[in-house]
């Protein structure tokens, strides 16, 4: 499981970085989304991997924390998802405005002169 997860994070982040460095706004935004997915998985894995363990403990009495998954990293992921979702939506609006004002989807607002 560790191998699959780390490979997954690596593929997400690698393709995200490649796309962010591309000159088209659409590629940049897809790249940022992929990066966000990779990072979310990474935060999740930092709470240590565990299969079949619930993150929420029952109330009262003695609770053995060893049989439960770390709830904090899951809460962090949730917050990070919400924030990255909102900023991506905002970026999309700016992207469309830029496309409308400049007539091109190049990140600099103009095509390069010499291809």
């Amino acid at each position: 499981m560790e191998l699959v997860l780390s490979l997954g994070i690596g593929v997400f982040v690698g393709s995200g970085i490649w796309l962010v460095l591309r000159p088209r706004t659409f590629q940049v935004i897809v790249g940022l989304c992929l990066l966000a997915y990779g990072i979310n998985l990474f935060i999740f894995s930092m709470g240590r991997l565990r299969t079949g363990a619930a993150p929420i403990m029952p109330k009262g009495g003695f609770v053995n924390p060893d049989v439960y998954a770390d709830p904090l990293s899951q809460a962090l992921v949730l917050t990070a998802i919400v924030i990255s979702f909102a900023t991506t939506a905002l970026f999309l609006v700016v992207m469309i405005a830029s496309r409308g004002l400049t007539g091109t989807d190049h990140v600099d607002g103009k095509e390069r002169e010499d291809p």
């Binding site: 962010v20 900023t87 970026f91 830029s98 004002l101 400049t102 990140v107 600099d108 607002g109």
Partner: peptide, 9 residues
């Protein structure tokens, strides 16, 4: 808008 695009990215 152009500056904003870079700033946000």
């Amino acid at each position: 808008v152009r500056a904003g695009l870079h700033y946000i990215a």
